[in-house]
Amino acid sequence: MNPPDKTQRNWSTFFIEALIRLLGFSSIGFVLLIFLFLLQEGIPAFFQVPLGNLLSELWYPTFDLYGILPLLLGSLLITLTAILIAVPLSVGTAVLVREAAPPWVREVLKPMIEALAGIPSVVLGFLGMTLVAPIVQKLGAPTGLTAFTGALILAYMSMPTIISVAEDALDTVPKSYRDAGLSMGATKWQTIWRVVVPAARSGIVTAVMLGLGRAIGETMAVMMVTGNAARMPLSLDSLFRPARTMTATIAAEMGEVAHGSIHYHMLFGIGLILFTLTFIINLIAASTIFKKRKKGGLR
């Protein structure tokens, strides 16, 4: 090893490290810039609109009524319902695909399920309008375009991701856990539900979070099938009435709003709320996974 060689190598190491650092920091920087922009455009809304107005039940920008509650609750209602539908179905499917299906069926099903994740949301929205909405209406709703229809479409959108990631999580559970369960005299299904699924818990939580990530931020499909009426979803039948989400509101109104107006800032304000909510959810998810890891119990 002669000296010039060494310096040359040091230089290239230095160069590569610098490049990686630059790339890494610039992507963080971009995210930060977007966040700052969001802050700058969104914060004024909360000063310009009195609190009473903000927390009212009416969203009528034309009359300067900026009650965000119906939108917030609309988003929550639709997302929560979607989770309630998607999580048991997806986890059940993942367990079925992983544990009950013969290997060749799994090999066919898995890529098919993953392909479903690639369907554009407009297409799903269209299917929702033409196929799902009429069915919901037949179930007794005054119109087919309801919060429930939106929740169904959202659940459908997030399921491929949840199934696929949860199945991978189940797959990584060591055989020794199954053996231990079976050798204790547990039946196959007792072993699955009491050993394998709990052991894959953190992976399944990640799966749900990834699926949710797609659902919460989803705009297009939801806008097409929920009816977009900004009403407070407080009565029992709200699920089967039209509703409006925060994302749909931003998407629908941003195009026509005057730059710099209260309405404009308000839409960014909603974006800020959305951002905060997603951030909190991710934080919770990360902390549950992290806690598990620290105890040395991920696997």
């Binding site: 020794s176 856990y177 053996d179 369960g181 050798s183 204790m184 005299g185 009491r194 050993v195 709990p198």
Partner: peptide, 25 residues
């Protein structure tokens, strides 16, 4: 398998609490 128990080569406790491991059976 309830009557004939097994201890494996590599210790394979479930990723649960000590109590839950013993209470599993």
């Amino acid at each position: 398998r309830r009557r004939v128990g097994m201890v494996f080569q590599r210790p394979n406790p479930f990723p649960k609490s000590i109590y839950d491991n013993v209470a599993f059976g």
